[in-house]
Design a protein around this nucleic acid. Sequence first.
DNA 1: TCCCGCGTGAAAAGATTTTTCCAAAACGAG
DNA 2: CTCGTTTTGGAAAAATCTTTTCACGCGGGA
Lengths: 303, 303
Amino acid sequence: MLPVFYSPEGDPALTKSSLTVREKIRDHYATLTQSERKFANSLLENYPAAGLASITIVASNADVSTPTVARMVQKLGFKGYPQFHQALLKELEAKVSGPTQRRANWASEAPEGHMLNRFSQAVTNNLSQTFSNVDSGQFDAAVRQLADTDGRLYVVGGRITRALADYAFTHFQAIRQRVTHMTSSSATWPHYVLDMEAGDTLLMFDVRRYETNLQRLAELAAERGVKVVLITDQWASPITAVAEHAFSCWVEIPSAWDSNISTMMLLEAMIAATQEESWDETKERYDRLDALFDTTRLFRKFS
Amino acid sequence: MLPVFYSPEGDPALTKSSLTVREKIRDHYATLTQSERKFANSLLENYPAAGLASITIVASNADVSTPTVARMVQKLGFKGYPQFHQALLKELEAKVSGPTQRRANWASEAPEGHMLNRFSQAVTNNLSQTFSNVDSGQFDAAVRQLADTDGRLYVVGGRITRALADYAFTHFQAIRQRVTHMTSSSATWPHYVLDMEAGDTLLMFDVRRYETNLQRLAELAAERGVKVVLITDQWASPITAVAEHAFSCWVEIPSAWDSNISTMMLLEAMIAATQEESWDETKERYDRLDALFDTTRLFRKFS
DNA sequence: TCCCGCGTGAAAAGATTTTTCCAAAACGAG
DNA sequence: CTCGTTTTGGAAAAATCTTTTCACGCGGGA
């Protein structure tokens, strides 16, 4: 016989729905206020440990007041904090005594063969492959090249990677000056090449199917003394031959096309590193950019 | 280096005495009185659940009085019942978060504090957070909506997420018919809204700083009966309120801006799922697209 | 039979936790 | 910029939990 602390009939919070606290938070997230979200995030980030202490401790850990927590758990549908606390405890307990100690996989509650799970597996694998194949020396060298504002930085991508090039452009533009986004319409590329000089940098994305035009462009640029930084896939674009720094990203997923998550990750890592490399210049640009956004009121204030 | 899950030095609760409560009970069993043993047995029979409630409840479940329990936990070496309670909790927690919590340090040979390593850590965490917060039912519903070719599919993003919207457009265009990419120039949006009909789908990206224009757009579209599928960050764009399906992505990384890797991952998972959902239509489109590429010779043959 | 000491739990006292109330601060609309 | 609304946290009140006190009952020994 199990000792039942809260018989289902006795506890409305558990009868009404068997949702986990996590799910309840998700469902009510839209109606939560700022500080309530602060607590919610703190809990989700360290779930469920961050909700197991007394309301006082839990609140101070999330840096909000006790009333905020109390109000929120009521919004979530609990009668009070103790009920909420018990619910978390129950979940934890269930997890321990649960049938199969669930695969150490992230995956949500989704069923075994669900796309979400298959996908998460593939992506994890890709990221890990990609990471372990990056040479940190090469990476640092490429970053120095990207941070070098003596020359211009050109960014270009192919049919699919155009989006990545766009993303790269948006960020590099915020970080440093003298950045040019070469649109994907290859007809205009010769004009850009005309202005390229030795010492400039060309950041290229080329994944299969590799594009002939991009290769031409890379060759022309390299001839003019432009340093080419290439982000490609695991099978390596032919541009690798003329590139100063080339990086391979693993891209296989269960689908007819290739994933660009590892590609994007490498790109973001480079942006982050570049920003760090030239933080003095960058910080000042960020501040000015922020001021401009404030003026134009394009964005909502975010605390 | 071996992954050390339980370093005695690391956990204060376990340093003082690395005995579990279970072991403590065994050690002191000889000195326990009759009623104390009654409680001890009750706890061991359902360990550690039977010790997680308040002393009152726990005592009454074991059919002994509160002072008995209080005296016993002191015999066991705890300062009071709360300490005993916490000890049990810690054990339970450790059991759950045990081996899986290993830090995913994929990273290459790069030194500990290298950006690549810091980055990989943050990204792993983001992906795992994002995954465990996706409701697979919501996901499936959103995918069905995205695969529905009775209505048009509109795609739009903000300043940063424009690139993601672009990426989404490129892929959805390959998968299904009737897809429109709303450019990021919000001046043209009213024209699109004019043509929107009930049953159409609007795939939106909105991460902080949330854009007022996007919110307007979402409201207008929702009013016309358009189903909004929203991909946002963990702090949730205000558009969540009018969206049919909303998904939160964890985006924090060691830098001044937010990462969009988890965002991209969710997007790719959706694309993959959509493709699977409507594979009959999709396959035929892919074949025709391939044939077109062959004809135009834009791409190199891939072996 | 009576007395003593130990174990036990009811109940009071004490400590802590949770909730409520309210004024100040933040926010957003006009 | 101002006003009205919502949100927030300090502090008191209420509820709950934990500990202590103490009297009762039981069993063993003189």
